[in-house]
Every structure is written in C-alpha cells, then in structure tokens.
Design a protein around this nucleic acid. Structure first.
Lengths: 154, 154
DNA sequence: CGGCGAAAGTGGCATATGCCACTAATTGAA
DNA sequence: TTCAATTAGTGGCATATGCCACTTTCGCCG
C-alpha cells in the first residue's frame, strides 16, 4: 500500500473527538474567562447546582469522570469558596456537595457569559446541527464499549 | 420559570463534548494500555509519523492544540525514546520532530491495539454513524467561533 | 457480635492542556 | 547595516483527568 493508505489517522474517533474538544473548549473558556471560571468548572458547578446536594460518586457517574479526578477538580472550587461539602446524614462514607451562596452568584454570572457563547456556537453551527451533535455525543458516551473479556476463564 | 427550565445544562455543547471525550478516551486508553501509550500519545505519535518531520508549530496547528501544551506532551515521549527533535536546517527557531526507530516500532504495536478498539467502536456505533460523527466534529473544530471583538476601539 | 468484602473517598503520581512571560532567531523597513 | 516587530519555542504555574494503593464505613453472614 502506498504511504497514503495507512489505517487513516483522522479516522480515529477518539483523536477527532479530542481535537474538537480542544477547539471548542478554548472557545467556551474564552467566553467564560471574565468570570474566572474554566468551562469545565462551569459545567461542574452547574451540575452541582441542578443536582440535589449530590454525592461525589453521583456527580462522577453523571459526568462520566473518575471519582478521584472529580475530587481533584473540586479543590480549586472549594478553595475559592464556590463549593462546599458535607457528610451524608446516613452514610458517613458519602460526601455530598453543594454550592455556597457565592457559588450560586458566580454560577449566575457565568451563565450569562455561557449563553452568549452557546448562542454564538449555535449560530455558526446551526441549532439543529448542534442538537444532533449533542445527541450523537451522548449516545457515544453511553455506549457500552467494554472490550469483551479475553477469557471468562472459569 | 420552574426549576426544570434552567438554561439547560445538557444543552452545553462543550460539556457534552467533554463528557463524551472522557468516556471514549477511557475506552481507547484501555485498549492501548498494553502498549504503554495513552490514546493521546498514540494520536500524537501517529501525527508525527504521517507528517514529514513536522515542525512543532505545524503539529500544534493540525491538532488544534497550544504550542506549549504540545511541547509538554512531547516530553515523556522523548524521554522514553520514541520521539526526537532537531533544528530546522533553514530556520533555527523551528524545531522539527520525528519518530525514532523505536518510536516506529511502538507505533506499529499500538496500531494493532488501536484497530481493535476502533473496530469495536464502529461495530457498536455503526461505521456510518461514526463517520458522520467524525465529520461533524471536524466541522466543529474548524468553525471560526472567535467572539466578535467588543469594540475595535480605534 | 466479629470479621470479611464491597463501597466511597483521599492522596500521590503522571500525563494533558492552557496561558503568560521570556528568549532566540528572523524578517522587514529605514 | 541596524533595530523594531514578528515568529517559534521554553519554562513556570494552574487546572483537568486517570490509575492505584489505602483508609474508613457499611452491609451482611456465620
């Protein structure tokens, strides 16, 4: 095969996804910059806001992220006073999370900025296209891709 | 408005994209684990491989990533002997990148693993759907979203 | 009731990414 | 030729994410 027919890099779903994520991430980050929040922090704060004082594990599951990663990501937000945690009443292993009043204020502030970016994106990409893209992404995120276990052994 | 009608979090294109990226990233990472490479490193190595001893700036542009981020990401690969850099003949500011023989070997090894994951993904998601998704993601990545400058001042 | 295995987090370590301030090399214009 | 503006990278600093090894709690079973 000629040099041109390698397995095809741009065919990698993951690479393509990450590339787009970097691109879009910068755009939303720029838009949110005035609030001092990164687009990831905004997303996390929003999730906490809509959740009912969610447990860390619940948030991690919803956002499909590693629990420890969530813990790390939460730190700067706690440090800056936007978020606070408290132990679950019935299960001391569980740590619940909620926004502080300042966190709520900051969220409102960020939402303003976010909606501008969101609107601009939808304008450029087409609201319908955007909706389809999100649906496709959600479908991908929820796929059960687990590689079949080599040998179920026994 | 009722609690149910907030601007809609899952409507955030960026958040949805990141969530999917985390999900898919883990899948590809798992698949590539035996090679010792992360999916991101694999993508980067592949890009270097197909490029013609590309300059760092060129790679960064292609992958839509920050130049400094690329530099950081390259370090472990250089440390492990998969990649090496050398100054451009005509412009000493430019640093070109290429795979070492070991890097080529590692790439081949990773490609085997990658194709298994890729195939599995396409099976689950549908090759056609996957192709459409990649096209949509590329379109998003290449959108010119720059926020219109507030005031061109002077 | 004692102990074992599961569940939920934490901390440490490593990579992924960005931004900013700086340095080195070039280029273009006076 | 000389110097200001531009271009390509580097290093430092901070967040984003993951995995792994533990520690603390629970839940359950004998």
């Amino acid at each position: 095969m000629t040099e041109a027919r390698k397995p095809g890099f741009s065919d990698c779903n993951n690479a393509t996804l990450r590339r787009a994520a970097r691109s879009l991430g910068r755009f939303y980050d720029d838009a949110l910059a005035p609030s001092g929040l990164k687009s990831t922090q905004f997303g996390l704060i929003f999730q906490i806001h809509v959740g009912n004082e969610p447990a860390m594990g619940t948030i991690a599951e919803t956002l499909i992220m590693d629990l420890s990663a969530l813990g790390h990501t939460l730190k700067p937000l706690i440090r800056d006073g936007y978020v606070e945690t408290f132990p679950d009443k019935d299960d001391r292993r569980v740590k619940r999370v909620r926004l502080t009043p300042q966190g709520e204020v900051k969220l409102d502030e960020a939402l303003e900025l976010w909606s501008v970016a969101q609107r601009r994106f939808e304008d450029k990409a087409g609201a319908e296209q955007a909706a389809k893209l999100r649906a496709a992404l959600d479908a991908v995120a929820d796929l059960d891709l687990e590689m079949p276990v080599a040998a179920p052994s026994k």
